[in-house]
Design a protein around this nucleic acid. Structure first.
Lengths: 148, 148
DNA sequence: TTATATTATTAGGTTTGCCTAACTTTTGGA
DNA sequence: TCCAAAAGTTAGGCAAACCTAATAATATAA
């Protein structure tokens, strides 16, 4: 059984992974800036994540994910990337908006729906001969409609 | 400028519209059942909605939306229906799951993304000659993958 | 090394959104 | 009509998630 956490805590956990993947050591202030909150909120969140066994954080010391935390963070970040890709490649959203909307809904979609989106993306990529006819028709259509 | 309300309050407002559209008079207990909360939460929410000028509710009396409230409720419900349709017609989700996921994310998507989804749906409906090639290919593909 | 700037933490407070328990009002059947 | 059941309301409490102000620890630079 994987641990359940709130959408807000998901954001904190994910941000730690992202900072690490950029090759940096996660600091309270970096997490705060990334999530757009103040430092005390980070401290509080870390203590909750620690209670759930996803993170280890010692006073004035390093912030580390447990293996359980890392696994969960990767799963969350995977969802995020999938949604972003769907928004970009299927709906033709620009990078920034795709990122923003992915952020906002990643906590709420069922696994099944995410699977469908993945299938959709895969389908497009696996059937390049079919793609141009419709997806590019669609995307050039929306270029005109949606201000460009 | 339209009034901003929280996701939770959006649910309450929307539920009032839905109950009315079904031809019923909205009652506290009906709203409570629809949103899966207890009656006191409804009372509290109604007083917030009233403060925002979206609803009128007199003690032990009728629950009515103002014209502003009705307008907002319709907009929210429109989003809900759009998302549900997208999930069903594009991703091929079953009705129940489409409904559930629409519920969960309807508060968080940007207008732009919703517009794209609408365009996508319209595109499908306006180009029936192109549709079979890809959307039905996709949908029969996922029939196999996703348990059917 | 010591003073200062930066970073981290604690304490305490706010808002939102939910709850239960107790109470009030309304409704509907005997 | 009257009283019990149903519906609605109030009071008070709790958790999540944020904040500011004050304090503590650490890092840096003179």
């Amino acid at each position: 059984m994987t641990v359940k956490i709130t959408p807000a805590l998901e954001d904190y956990l994910e941000s730690i992974l992202i900072i690490q993947e950029r090759g940096n050591v996660p600091r309270v202030k970096d997490i705060a800036r990334m999530i757009n909150v103040k430092a005390p909120s980070v401290i509080e969140a870390l203590s909750h994540l620690q209670k759930k066994g996803l993170v280890v954080h010692e006073r004035y010391g390093y912030i580390e994910m447990t293996s359980k935390g890392l696994k969960k963070a990767k799963k969350l970040y995977g969802r995020h990337l999938l949604l972003k890709k769907f928004f970009q490649d299927v709906l033709g959203l620009d990078k920034k908006l795709a990122e923003e909307d992915a952020c906002r809904i990643e906590h709420y979609l069922s696994q099944e729906t995410l699977n469908r989106m993945l299938s959709f993306i895969n389908f497009i990529e696996d059937h390049p001969e079919e793609k141009p006819d419709w997806l590019s028709d669609f995307q050039s259509l929306i270029e005109g409609n949606h201000k460009g």
